[in-house]
C-alpha cells in the first residue's frame, strides 16, 4: 500500500511542468461546470438580482444587476460584470462593478472587495472550488446588506465618512445614485 501511494504520488507530481497543454483542457472543464452552474444560478436568483448574457452561447461572461430593496442603496441599480476565467473553478470569477457608487467595499474604479472572490485566503471565507456561481451572486447581492463591511474598506474615504457622519454618508450614497441615473 505504501509503495503504491508513493508511486501514485510520484506520477501525479510530474505533470506540473507539462503546463503547455493544460489551458486547452481547462476551457472545457470550465464550460462543463458552467452548464450546470448557470442553470442553478438562474433557479436560485435572489429577488433583487437579475442576470443578462450578452451572448447566450457564452456562459462565462454575464452582467449581474442588483437592485437592493433595503439598506443605504435602496432605489439604486448596480451592474456588475462577471467573467469566469479558464482556470475556473480553481480560480474565482473576475468581477467589476460597472456602476459608479459610494460604497466602502467597492471603489470608484469598480474594484470589488469581497472575500469569496479572493483567490488566496487563509480562512474559510476565500475562494474554494466548492463555491459556485450562485454563491458569487449571493455574495455580491449581500454587499448591500449582510456583507457590507466598514471595518476593512476598499474605499477608505467612504468608511471614514460613515464613521464620522452617517447622514452625510447616506447623502453621498444618494448623490452617486442620482448621478449614475442621469
Amino acid at each position: 500500500m505504501i509503495t503504491l501511494n508513493r508511486k501514485l504520488k510520484k506520477e501525479h507530481t510530474v505533470p506540473s511542468n507539462g503546463l503547455a497543454s493544460e489551458p486547452v483542457k481547462r476551457i472545457s472543464i470550465r464550460d462543463k461546470l458552467l452548464i450546470k452552474e448557470v442553470q442553478e444560478m438562474n433557479e436560485n436568483l435572489p429577488m433583487t438580482c437579475s442576470v443578462h448574457f450578452e451572448d447566450p452561447n457564452v456562459l462565462n461572461e454575464f452582467i449581474l444587476t442588483v437592485t437592493p430593496d433595503e439598506g443605504y442603496w435602496v432605489g439604486g441599480k448596480f451592474k456588475f460584470s462577471v467573467f469566469v476565467t479558464e482556470e475556473y473553478n480553481m480560480a474565482p470569477p473576475r468581477v467589476k462593478c460597472l456602476t459608479r457608487l459610494w460604497h466602502p467595499n467597492i471603489n470608484v474604479d469598480g474594484d470589488v472587495c469581497l472575500s469569496l472572490l479572493r483567490q488566496t485566503s487563509i480562512d474559510e471565507h476565500g475562494w474554494a472550488p466548492t463555491r459556485r456561481l450562485k454563491d458569487v451572486v449571493w455574495g455580491l447581492n449581500s454587499l448591500f446588506t449582510d456583507l457590507l463591511n466598514f471595518e476593512d474598506p476598499l474605499n477608505i474615504e467612504a468608511a471614514e465618512l460613515y464613521n464620522k457622519n452617517k447622514t452625510e454618508f447616506q447623502a453621498k450614497v444618494q448623490e452617486y445614485m442620482t448621478k449614475g441615473k442621469r
Binding site: S16, M90, Q119, T120, E124, A128, P129, T130
Partner: peptide, 14 residues
Amino acid sequence: SLWVKQNNRCPLCQ
C-alpha cells in the same frame, strides 16, 4: 492536487 497547489486546505472544512 490542482487545488492544494494554491491552498493546502480541505475546501470543505478548511
